[in-house]
Computed example of a mutant assay.
Amino acid sequence: MSQLTKRSLVEQAVDQLRDQIAKGTWQVGQRLPTEPELASDLGISRNTVREAMRVLAFSGLVEVRQGDGSYLRTVQDPLQAVQAMARCTVEHARETRHILEAEAIGLAALRCTEHDLRELRQALLQSGEHFHGDVDAYVACDIQFHQRLVDAAHNPALSELYRYFSGVVAAALQHNMTSVPRCQATFDLHGQILDALEQRDPQRAKRLSRTLIES
């Protein structure tokens, strides 16, 4: 019963803090009041405030900087975006990948570093080890490879958007791999995209990415 009560108090604190954020009590980038101050304002314990802040940090609303405090990261709850993505159709997901992923990979061909390329080669090698084996293991490796492709564009906004969207990509990939035979030619497209990055060829990288998305 005590655990249920504690969890309920944390949920109430989260709701109160979300309400304050929605009302514009704090601006994006502003340092939030300290735990003692929030505890006093909300009439709850510091432990409850601490756990509530962890929930907000996990959801992406708040950034906790060790030794510095908590800062408001956004006023739009990322959880709502994730939930909206989860409801999107297969066609909507495909369209989004064309706009987000393919264009990011084009930028990556122009901006990637030698370190990026090494990391991508390693991620692709790990994916290859699982392509004909366990589906869950392959999907996890493949999503990591695609995230690194987007990260190689060195645009934090694109990276963050794709990180939220990757759950949709993973679900679609898992469905495809369990419903149709695995095609080596499809997997080989990953290596060809990486070759295009190494050759600094954004148009080829985007074209191959779009072919992969449609496969």
Rank of each mutant, 00 (worst) to 15 (best):
residue 122 Q to F: 02
residue 178 T to V: 10
residue 128 G to Y: 03
residue 153 A to D: 03
residue 115 H to V: 14
residue 109 A to T: 05
residue 107 L to A: 10
residue 123 A to F: 01
residue 188 D to A: 11
residue 150 V to N: 06
residue 136 D to N: 13
residue 137 A to N: 07
residue 105 I to N: 06
residue 92 H to V: 14
residue 97 R to C: 10
residue 107 L to M: 15
residue 163 R to M: 05
residue 123 A to G: 02
residue 175 H to S: 11
residue 89 T to F: 01
residue 96 T to K: 06
residue 181 P to H: 09
residue 164 Y to C: 06
residue 148 R to W: 00
residue 103 E to V: 13
residue 114 E to W: 01
residue 136 D to P: 00
residue 147 Q to D: 02
residue 124 L to C: 00
residue 168 V to R: 03
residue 138 Y to L: 13
residue 112 C to L: 02
residue 108 A to V: 03
residue 146 H to M: 04
residue 126 Q to I: 07
residue 171 A to W: 03
residue 190 H to K: 12
residue 169 V to Q: 05
residue 115 H to P: 02
residue 127 S to T: 10
residue 188 D to E: 10
residue 124 L to M: 08
residue 89 T to E: 06
residue 145 F to Q: 07
residue 177 M to G: 09
residue 170 A to G: 08
residue 96 T to I: 09
residue 134 D to W: 07
residue 86 A to D: 09
residue 136 D to S: 11
residue 167 G to Q: 10
residue 140 A to G: 03
residue 190 H to Y: 11
residue 83 Q to F: 13
residue 106 G to M: 10
residue 159 S to W: 01
residue 178 T to D: 00
residue 100 L to G: 00
residue 147 Q to I: 00
residue 90 V to M: 04
residue 107 L to R: 14
residue 131 F to P: 07
residue 117 L to W: 02
residue 93 A to F: 05
residue 100 L to P: 01
residue 94 R to E: 14
residue 163 R to I: 00
residue 148 R to K: 04
residue 103 E to M: 11
residue 144 Q to F: 00
residue 103 E to A: 04
residue 136 D to W: 01
residue 187 F to Y: 15
residue 182 R to K: 14
residue 146 H to C: 03
residue 150 V to G: 08
residue 180 V to Q: 15
residue 156 P to E: 08
residue 111 R to K: 13
residue 127 S to N: 03
residue 145 F to N: 08
residue 95 E to G: 15
residue 97 R to Q: 14
residue 150 V to Q: 08
residue 185 A to C: 08
residue 156 P to A: 11
residue 174 Q to I: 06
residue 113 T to L: 00
residue 121 R to Q: 10
residue 133 G to E: 07
residue 130 H to W: 13
residue 133 G to Q: 08
residue 161 L to C: 12
residue 128 G to Q: 13
residue 83 Q to L: 15
residue 123 A to K: 02
residue 190 H to I: 05
residue 181 P to C: 10
residue 89 T to D: 12
residue 105 I to M: 08
residue 173 L to F: 12
residue 85 M to E: 11
residue 116 D to W: 01
residue 170 A to L: 09
residue 135 V to L: 14
residue 96 T to A: 14
residue 109 A to C: 05
residue 188 D to I: 04
residue 143 I to D: 09
residue 169 V to N: 10
residue 110 L to R: 14
residue 140 A to I: 06
residue 87 R to V: 07
residue 111 R to L: 10
residue 189 L to V: 12
residue 109 A to V: 06
residue 159 S to Y: 05
residue 113 T to P: 03
residue 88 C to M: 15
residue 189 L to Y: 05
residue 177 M to S: 07
residue 120 L to T: 01
residue 134 D to H: 11
residue 135 V to W: 07
residue 129 E to P: 02
residue 113 T to R: 02
residue 127 S to V: 08
residue 178 T to G: 13
residue 140 A to P: 06
residue 191 G to V: 04
residue 143 I to N: 05
residue 122 Q to P: 01
residue 104 A to V: 12
residue 86 A to R: 13
residue 182 R to F: 07
residue 115 H to Q: 13
residue 164 Y to K: 01
residue 109 A to G: 09
residue 85 M to H: 11
residue 158 L to H: 08
residue 185 A to I: 01
residue 131 F to G: 08
residue 151 D to T: 13
residue 172 A to C: 07
residue 142 D to G: 13
residue 172 A to M: 10
residue 168 V to C: 04
residue 177 M to W: 15
residue 184 Q to A: 11
residue 172 A to W: 04
residue 133 G to P: 09
residue 157 A to D: 12
residue 157 A to E: 11
residue 184 Q to F: 01
residue 149 L to P: 03
residue 147 Q to C: 12
residue 164 Y to V: 05
residue 145 F to E: 07
residue 170 A to S: 12
residue 94 R to M: 06
